Simulated assay, not measured.
Amino acid sequence: MQMSTRLVSALRKLYIAFHNNMLNPECCMQCAVGNILDHTDSWKNLSDYHGALKLNYVGKVHQNLGRKFNGYSPIELLQIEATFLEACGYKLPLHFKNDKPKNPTDKDILFNGLSEVVKLLCKMDHVSNVMDYTKLFEFENEKPRYKIADILA
């Protein structure tokens, strides 16, 4: 499977953030998008609320100019962040009065969030979900349907 440069880069950054405990849904520099954008928070100026899917004026200008941030358009960045936050258990947009997980940096919660983000990133690039392991266990006539080398290639 051929992956784009932006997808490989995003996956690498999220992998590193997860394993180095540098992933925090409530911090604009350590959330999914903050990590994809090299720990910057300037992306938060694309919408009025953290977790919102609606671009504000600044976001619309960048979107209409075709601006990309590490390969992703402003609307794609908002989709990535909203997906991450929702999968982590937040009610959007992020606000102190809205529901949120008791321990937002719990590895299981973060893994759920990242799983959904990876699925979305793969969908955006029109490739199979790299975290889909179901083919490993498909069988036909009591034998594996696919060779592991073909799946992992």
Rank of each mutant, 00 (worst) to 15 (best):
R12K: 14
A153N: 15
L94F: 07
T5F: 04
Y133E: 11
Q2Y: 10
L46D: 00
S73Q: 07
S4E: 11
M3E: 11
H50K: 13
M3S: 08
E138N: 04
V8F: 11
V61W: 06
L92D: 05
H62V: 10
G66K: 07
V127Q: 01
N103K: 03
T105E: 02
K135L: 09
F96S: 13
V130N: 07
A87S: 13
L23C: 01
G59Y: 01
A87Y: 01
G71D: 06
K68R: 15
G66H: 07
E26F: 04
Q30M: 11
H19I: 06
K102C: 01
A17T: 08
K119I: 09
I148A: 12
M124D: 04
C28G: 10
G113F: 05
M1S: 12
V61S: 05
H50E: 12
N56P: 08
S9V: 04
I75A: 02
K60S: 10
R67Y: 07
H39N: 15
N24E: 14
C88G: 07
I151N: 09
L114M: 09
K102P: 00
N129C: 09
M22P: 00
L114I: 14
L55A: 09
A17R: 02
I80Q: 00
S128D: 15
F18W: 08
L7Q: 01
F111H: 11
L46C: 02
H126A: 10
L94S: 02
Q63K: 06
D108F: 08
P104G: 04
K68T: 13
I75P: 01
D150L: 11
V8E: 14
S9A: 12
V33P: 01
P74A: 07
K100L: 03
L78E: 05
Q79T: 11
P93M: 10
